[in-house]
Every structure is written in structure tokens, then in C-alpha cells.
Amino acid sequence: MNLIIVIVLCLLIVAMAVTAIMHKKLTISVLAAGVVSLLASVLYLLLAAPDVAMTEAAIGSGLSTIIFFYVLNKIRNVK
């Protein structure tokens, strides 16, 4: 059961990473990078690392996405 969850998670992580690199729109690219972090935190939980999972969920997908959006907002306002 865990194995199936891990396989689906890893496929989603790779798909989201490809989206983050290939998509033309910056907003979607940044969001996809945040989703990669969020899925990675679930993967950490399955790898028996709950501390790392909490850190990644709070920092990788929360704060760092917000900082990206602050910068994107500033850039969009000027154009």
C-alpha cells in the first residue's frame, strides 16, 4: 500500500517539476515549485522523517512561495 502511494507521489513530483521548468507563465511555474515541496513533505513522512516533513511543509511550500509571489507582484505592477 505504501509502495503505491510512494510511486504516485514520485510521478506527481516529477510531473510538477517538469511543469515548473517548462511552463511559460511565471505564476504557474512558482506554484508548481511549491507543489513539489508539498508533495516532498508527504514523501518525507513516508520515509519516517516527521521533523523534516514539518519543516518542508512550513518553509518550502509556505514561506518561500509567498516570497516568490511578493517579487512577482512587484514585477507585474511595473509592467
Partner: peptide
């Protein structure tokens, strides 16, 4: 699970 870094970012 948790600690200073997680709590600080929350």
C-alpha cells in the same frame, strides 16, 4: 516532531 525552526516559521 517539531521544534524551533518549524514553530518559528509557523
Amino acid at each position: 516532531p517539531g521544534g524551533g525552526f518549524q514553530g518559528g516559521s509557523i
